[in-house]
Design a protein around this nucleic acid. Structure first.
Lengths: 119, 119
DNA sequence: CTTTCATGTGAACATTTGCTCATGTGTTTA
DNA sequence: TAAACACATGAGCAAATGTTCACATGAAAG
């Protein structure tokens, strides 16, 4: 049998044995895409700032915009994305929309990243 | 004094009091950009897959490519980015370059994300 | 009901990003 | 030394992304 993939290098590497084991232990593709999409939310500085603010204090849209010095429209677009990812939620209070973190994982993920960045 | 920013909504929201406190507690901009850049590394499925593989087993470039079914060139480009971010390192062994995780934070960050994705 | 205020949203645009393709570099083997 | 192999890299390109601008929506105040 010994069907070889043309992409593979010569027998010098580990190959079949280990490669197959690792492949078997990998999550399915859907999970991996979900995972990447989750981290993508934290990979933009505007969204990062929004989540950081909401970690400390729920806040209306215009206050977020004012605090961060970013246009209300830009904030609104990013909030939409964050809501779609179920990371933040909002409720109406009079004229304002109050935003807040929808998931406790946000804190732990950011904290984990922060502890890396701060050495 | 009472210098108001035109972006701010009316006095209905929290404003000055809370906004100023949150602003003071925010990390500086450089840290926030670093943080976003770190998470950006996890926000692409190819890089995610590479790191997932290396979490289980150090491996040469061509084996990573073969295991993931992605071209060697594409893998190489992503490895370059991951090395620049100090998330993976490599050593030469004969003709091959063996790649491995350079940072234990990688595991904890991915695990944290995974536990979110898996509910 | 009309106006105002807070927010949402589509289109257009400039960047960024990730891939392919061709080729370059460095190491081993014949 | 020459050929083969593993990997790196630059150019080019298509797709994704984030912002601005103009305008739509929806609740509240008059």
């Amino acid at each position: 049998m010994e069907e070889r993939n043309e992409l593979m290098c010569d027998e010098s590497c580990s190959h079949n044995e280990v490669v197959e084991k690792v492949r078997a232990d990998m999550p399915d593709d859907d999970t991996l895409y979900e995972l990447a999409d989750l981290f993508k939310m934290f990979g933009d500085s505007t969204r990062m700032k929004i989540m950081f603010v909401l970690m400390e204090q729920e806040m209306c849209v215009c206050d977020i915009a004012e605090l961060l010095g970013i246009s209300q429209s830009a904030i609104s677009h990013q909030l939409r994305i964050l809501k779609q990812s179920k990371l933040i939620s909002s409720r109406r209070e009079g004229k304002n929309i109050i935003c807040f973190l929808a998931d406790d994982h946000v804190r732990s993920i950011i904290d984990q990243g922060l502890s890396h960045v701060l050495e």
